[in-house]
Design a protein around this nucleic acid. Structure first.
Lengths: 210, 210
DNA sequence: TTTTTTATCCATGAAAACCGGTAGATGAAA
DNA sequence: TTTCATCTACCGGTTTTCATGGATAAAAAA
């Protein structure tokens, strides 16, 4: 089926990883490593003279980022497949990369087998990414991303609980009954789906409420 | 000066990086790569039969962490030099690694030249780390917030408390008495200068321990 | 104008956390 | 060897939290 070797280009500024990729790709049948660049600019220049089949692209690069480069390449060389190869696990980064036209998203903990397999898969017009990334992308963490709507009073109480205040201390400070404070705290815990204050504070902190 | 080649061992679970290191080290004069392992346990087993001069050690590893491994190795093979090779830039991690006896701390963006140079430097009993890390380490600790030194056990309990586990649940999980868990928690609260778990979790989170 | 949400309050009892000590066993360090 | 740190465990007692299961009034939304 394969008429000639797939040409591959790597853009990666960490030399240890660049070396690793280089070594893996060179040792793989059916792949031909055309170059390893440490900046997007240099790689683009190269592509101008010699397009490739697959581009392995880091995101954190000096100057022009991998995301920008991805957009540029996809505009100019529609046939070139792009696989993002990075450590970013933030949903926003992944999304941006995919919206920029990337054909795959791999983390740097990918095994050499998976890496090589991924390259042939994207050449078959498949879209590839690890299951971790898929999960991240398609499940807003069922009870996670949707941060509960808190009332003004609840936010106040949450703050004070986080400062280590006891129920009665909070009551005194807000001039309300301790029972009321209890009720609010209970509702908070319910909304956050936890069963004690420690976990409540942790979740609230994670969501940036504290 | 050098009588024979320096023997080097790599412990790294990301295969791309492992490959990169392997390739770099094999291509370096005066160095002999004795092995690349993806777990601390496997590497320790190997060291038992064959000590080496220098150990390149990742920190995030499955099961036993690089920090623990560092301690173990330094205890058993005092002459082996250890260079941490990781992406962790948290001050606490760096400190812990150095306290565990590491002779150097490099980030994974190190160039191959620097890496090879680092190896010969530690063999000359020099201590090596990037200037970024030095800055991080000697930076004035924002607002005098020296984070308390926690014991291994305390860290474990802190994690679990943050997950909302009760004293008895923690006790069951760690196979120790609930009273012991209470004691640890009490000590944690003392160290963080708070008087309940909610505030404990908040402070710990602020300091990046959770 | 109903209905819902929000904030307020209450009681009771069980479970957990918190406090202030004490103390044995290790293992490492001085 | 003695000291120090750490982990372990216990006692007795107080305080706080958590779970149930209510209720009322005002404000906002429908």
């Amino acid at each position: 089926m394969i008429t000639h070797k797939l040409s591959v280009l790597v853009v990666e500024d960490h030399s240890i990883i660049a070396e690793g990729l280089s070594s893996i790709l060179q040792g793989s049948e059916g792949l031909e490593l055309r170059g390893v660049f440490s900046t997007a600019e240099a790689a683009l220049l190269f592509l101008g003279s010699q397009p490739v089949d697959v581009l392995l692209l880091d995101i954190s690069l000096p100057e022009m980022s991998g995301i920008e480069m991805c957009r540029t390449v996809k505009k100019q060389y529609k046939k070139t497949k792009i696989i993002a190869l990075t450590n970013h696990t933030e949903k926003s980064v992944v999304q941006e990369m995919l919206e920029s036209g990337a054909d795959g998203y791999l983390l740097k903990n990918t095994s050499r087998q998976d890496l090589v397999a991924a390259i042939s898969q994207v050449m078959n017009n498949q879209f590839i990414m690890q299951s971790e990334i898929q999960k991240l992308l398609f499940s807003p963490t069922p009870a996670g991303k949707a941060l509960p709507r808190l009332t003004t009073r609840e936010k106040e109480i949450l703050q004070l609980v986080g400062q280590g205040a006891t129920t009665s201390a909070i009551a005194r400070q807000l001039f309300i009954s301790p029972q009321t404070v209890e009720t609010h705290r209970r509702n908070l815990m319910q909304k956050f789906e936890v069963n004690n204050s420690a976990a409540l504070i942790k979740k609230a902190t994670e969501k940036g409420l504290l």
